[in-house]
């Protein structure tokens, strides 16, 4: 059962399961953004930032903030192991919804598909890929819940939590680096374009 990564543990199937849940969330988020945008605007308050100008986080400070946040989500996804995959599904859907709304509102405000892709893809592929790996581990909780009477060390080892954690830390660090140092530059270059 533990012979290969692609063996009976079905890591690949669970990874694509996690990707599917995320994609459902993304689609729902985009649909919600378009639904909200189609509503009559009514009277809305002006959007004001409560942060003093010039105090936006940048550089390593931003890197640390993004990495901490993403690692928290990563660990939450692993809690699916303990909740029959429930937390994993809900957190993946929630994150998909958030990213989907972001994409939807960016599109409805006039941003081109190419600009949305420039802003999201460089770090998003690594970040969401790592979260889907954690999602695949969390979805293992469904199988564990069915076999709870036979839960033992072998079942625990099949989770490969050490490998998942090391991979997650590496991938999310790289993604946070790209987001803090590359995506910010891209966003600056796009400022005022739309």
């Amino acid at each position: 059962m533990l012979d290969t990564t692609f063996g009976n543990d079905n890591w690949v199937g669970r990874f694509f399961g996690a990707v599917s849940v995320l994609v459902v969330g993304l689609a729902a988020g985009i649909a919600i953004a378009e639904w909200v945008n189609a509503m009559p605007a009514g009277s809305t308050p002006p959007v004001v930032s409560h942060r003093p100008p010039g105090t936006e986080p940048a550089g390593w400070e931003l890197f640390a903030f993004i990495l901490r946040r993403n690692l928290t989500v990563f660990l939450m996804l692993l809690l699916g192991v303990l909740s029959a995959g429930l937390v994993t599904i809900v957190v993946l859907l929630g994150n998909g919804l958030a990213v989907g709304q972001l994409i939807g509102f960016a599109r409805t405000s006039g941003m081109s598909h190419a600009d949305v892709a420039y802003l999201l893809l460089p770090h998003g592929v690594l970040e969401l890929g790592a979260l889907c790996i954690a999602g695949a581990a969390g979805l293992r909780g469904i199988g564990l819940a069915f076999g709870i009477s036979a839960f033992d060390r072998r079942a625990l080892e099949s989770l490969r939590l050490g490998t998942v954690l090391v991979f997650g830390l590496g991938a999310l660090s790289a993604a946070a680096g790209v987001e803090a140092f590359v995506t910010v530059e891209i966003a600056e270059s796009l400022r005022g374009k739309w």
Binding site: L79, G80, L82, S83, L86, V87, I89, V90, V91, G94
Partner: peptide, 8 residues
């Protein structure tokens, strides 16, 4: 999310 995390 709170409900799911509480059960976990």
């Amino acid at each position: 999310m709170v409900a799911a995390v509480t059960t976990a």
